[in-house]
Amino acid sequence: MSGNGNAAATAEENSPKMRVIRVGTRKSQLARIQTDSVVATLKASYPGLQFEIIAMSTTGDKILDTALSKIGEKSLFTKELEHALEKNEVDLVVHSLKDLPTVLPPGFTIGAICKRENPHDAVVFHPKFVGKTLETLPEKSVVGTSSLRRAAQLQRKFPHLEFRSIRGNLNTRLRKLDEQQEFSAIILATAGLQRMGWHNRVGQILHPEECMYAVGQGALGVEVRAKDQDILDLVGVLHDPETLLRCIAERAFLRHLEGGCSVPVAVHTAMKDGQLYLTGGVWSLDGSDSIQETMQATIHVPAQHEDGPEDDPQLVGITARNIPRGPQLAAQNLGISLANLLLSKGAKNILDVARQLNDAH
């Protein structure tokens, strides 16, 4: 009898209710805020589980004197976190989706994509230029951005401005803007500013005609071990179906173009009346040469937790077992079709030249 009692006690200790789920994140304040929001949602869904947040620095956090596009290494903000995932030191990792490459290392998958916040870019102005827009900034004003995508589009749109690289986390960039006289304004992701509670610093939100956004911008991705079915089931509740389908289309477009950090590629997606609209573009580094096109596809946005595919093969690095396969494939095909259209119009040449120029500098 006593033996059975011990077995029952052991089973209770090993039951999922007692389990601590370890969540990996970057150390920056924004990353911690984003991770806290994901953990809060998981806690609400699984009140019996405990969650421990483990923060670590990544290569991208450490190399702050070089433009991201020049470092010449993929997975700048993800490699150390993936290493911890691989060694079973954490069970899942919360990322900004735009930091996750469209091809993940073997053994990993994006197990959830959370509801997207505003994906557009924002302009934050130096205190002396508050009330201005990019259009009304004085001639030769210097605007800071760490992104080739932003610089290429904005140089084309605002030729009277000069664009220079600015690195560091959000706090560091804002301090550089406010305390030094080098920059009249800087460009940042609206979602990051909003998550930090800095709505009052948003001086201008850039519309798609001015600057399309990065693939996955404004959404959070939760990376897990691809074979860890328990954790895949656990994080599945975080999937937002519309965000998922938009981001599958965007990531398929980028992957098929073979774009990345070192080339200016941008997108804009919208879901309306059962249609998914995808606009994508590529630019030369100075913005003088560009190709942009829009395509659409009829896609039914499923309700969360309709029964999805059981075999769960990944699409552009994403596993969404609780979302039907048909809409996911339709979104992926839309991204591939748009990429093929741009490639047929000469996108590869623009991107190759951009890559060579970026590598040469």
Rank of each mutant, 00 (worst) to 15 (best):
V20W: 08
T25H: 10
R32T: 06
I33A: 14
T35I: 00
T35E: 00
T35N: 04
D36C: 06
V38E: 04
L42S: 02
L42G: 03
S45M: 06
S45Q: 14
G48V: 11
I54W: 04
T59K: 09
D61Y: 07
D65I: 08
K70E: 09
K70A: 12
T78S: 08
K79P: 08
L81H: 10
E86I: 13
N88W: 13
E89M: 08
V90D: 02
D91R: 04
L92M: 12
L97E: 04
L97S: 05
P101C: 02
V103I: 08
L104D: 05
P105W: 08
G107Q: 15
F108K: 01
F108E: 15
F108H: 01
I110D: 04
G111S: 07
A112Q: 07
C114I: 13
K115C: 08
D121S: 04
A122M: 07
V123F: 04
V124C: 09
F125N: 09
F125I: 12
P127D: 06
K128L: 11
K132A: 09
T133W: 09
E135S: 08
T136Y: 11
E139N: 13
V142T: 11
R149P: 02
R150T: 04
A152L: 13
A152W: 10
F158P: 03
E162P: 00
F163T: 14
R164E: 14
I166Q: 05
G168A: 03
N169F: 05
L170C: 09
L174D: 02
L177K: 01
Q180S: 10
Q180L: 12
I186V: 11
L188W: 03
M196W: 05
G197W: 04
G197V: 06
W198F: 11
W198H: 11
L206W: 04
C211M: 15
A214C: 09
V224C: 13
D228N: 14
Q229G: 14
D230R: 12
I231N: 08
H239T: 14
T243I: 05
T243G: 11
T243P: 06
L244W: 02
R246S: 12
C247W: 04
I248F: 11
I248W: 05
I248H: 00
A252W: 01
F253R: 01
L254M: 09
H256D: 06
C261L: 00
P264S: 15
M271N: 08
Q275W: 02
Q275F: 05
L276P: 02
L276I: 06
Y277L: 12
L278Q: 15
T279R: 06
T279N: 13
S284E: 00
S284R: 15
L285I: 10
D286Y: 09
S288Q: 14
S288A: 13
E293P: 01
M295K: 12
T298F: 06
H300I: 10
P302Y: 09
H305K: 03
P309M: 00
D311S: 05
P313W: 02
P313D: 02
G317E: 00
A320Y: 00
I323T: 08
P324V: 08
R325V: 04
R325M: 01
G326C: 13
L329P: 00
A331R: 01
S337Q: 01
L338R: 03
A339S: 07
A339R: 04
L343T: 09
K345R: 03
A347G: 03
A347K: 01
K348F: 11
N349K: 13
I350N: 08
I350T: 02
I350L: 06
D352R: 10
D352H: 15
